[in-house]
Design a protein around this nucleic acid. Structure first.
Lengths: 230, 230
DNA sequence: TAGTATGCAGGTTAAATAAGGTTAACGATC
DNA sequence: GATCGTTAACCTTATTTAACCTGCATACTA
């Protein structure tokens, strides 16, 4: 997938600049807008592939912007940035319908993972034959949907966590993924409690993958991991 | 079924906006009203297909609104949103005759399932004969209305719970459904009592479906299930 | 400056716990 | 007296926690 154009509406200028630079360094094109009132106009002229909207904005809040965008276009994904209000149980069901929510504060990797997810989903909708397809990883065939890992006839059932971790590593292969981002995405927080748990799962995956020496989960000490494939 | 028009009466603005946005992103049309006193008027002009009423509202509570709506129209479904504390007896009294209720905090998934259920029931009343359609699930033909599951000539009668669970799984296939949502929708609460009961039904369905290996009810531990179809 | 301590980050393994699966038995209901 | 739904007892497995180990980086010391 070629890198996407993102409309990013955010009024905290300092944060906005960091996020923008970080996204740009990864090849995305960013249209940054700080004024909620001008966001829709920006949308019309720029026609982005995806929108990232802060909810609390001057002049017009993120929801209202989303509404107007939805009137023009029903399937551009929208990611909302919310302050850590008591969204409690609600948030769970949200990542459907082209929309997603991220709670502030968030990490860049987390945002990027969500963006990639949203784009993949939308593209999946476009050509029906999506998601369910097998992914070749070295000598293995990985089906994240069925949570299976095949290698010359042998099928191994993966647990949910194993499968999600492998998927995350694979989707960000050949690039360093921050430990904290993995923890945030898979476990919802990065306290050092579950930090040990992640190590355990890395060990498990290494065990599963070791029959193909071209695959390696490399430790980047103090930062995270890099999944090297072939 | 084409997507429905929903009257949603809720005074917590932040919650209201999230719910509204999320429902809209799924294709429903939402009329949002924050003032209980104006809800009935909104009902008259908008003629929604279904109403979702918070019970605690300024100026006029949800029950009173429901009563007035019932005087005009006996079969528009009404879903009440209640705080956990509010006596269930009172709520239960109202939950007959096309009404339903959800305890706050709820998840979007649960709300959506309830809405779909309510609409389906009402449509079932309108023309008895529609529902009859069979659903193809892998090698099986499932008729949720007659509660039957056919596979090459063999017919198996399903019990009510079996049938409803299979329907719920199927309608949310290829997506993780939260255990609690299933329990709330099928059993009305998610205390760990009936939690075991759900397991039993999952086992039963797995047994019925196992002749087609392309069908699988995958456990997502700590969260719920995903029904994978071919 | 070589050699040595110290401390952190992570790896590994095993044990503990929690979640769910299975089966059978019990009542209720029709 | 079947059928259905629930409960209970017992089993299995995923996930977390804990204990202990390794290796590297930094700092310290002779």
């Amino acid at each position: 997938m070629s890198k996407a154009k993102i409309l990013y509406v955010e009024d905290e200028i300092f944060l906005a600049k960091i996020v923008r630079e970080s996204l740009e360094s990864r090849g995305y094109t960013i249209i940054l807008e700080t004024d909620g009132g001008k966001a829709v106009e920006q949308y019309k002229t720029a026609r982005p592939d995806i929108c990232v909207l802060d909810i609390m904005l001057p002049n017009k809040d993120g929801f209202s912007i989303a509404e107007e965008i939805r009137n023009m276009d029903t399937d551009t994904p929208i990611i909302f940035l919310t302050a850590k209000i008591q969204t409690t149980d609600l948030v769970k069901g949200f990542s459907m319908g082209g929309n997603d929510y991220i709670r502030k504060p968030f990490s860049m990797e987390e945002l990027i993972v969500r963006i990639e997810n949203a784009l993949r989903q939308r593209n999946g909708l476009k050509n029906q034959s999506d998601q369910k397809e097998d992914t070749k990883i070295g000598a293995f065939t990985f089906n994240p949907h069925r949570q299976t890992l095949n290698s010359n006839g042998q099928e191994r059932k993966l647990s949910f966590r194993e499968s999600e971790l492998l998927r995350l590593l694979y989707e960000n292969r050949d690039r360093v993924i921050d430990r904290r981002d993995i923890l945030n995405v898979l476990w919802g927080s990065d306290s050092f409690f579950n930090s040990r748990t992640l190590d355990v799962y890395i060990t498990k995956l290494r065990g599963y993958l070791k029959t193909d020496p071209s695959l390696e989960i490399i430790t980047v000490k103090g930062i995270g991991y890099r999944f090297v494939t072939g």
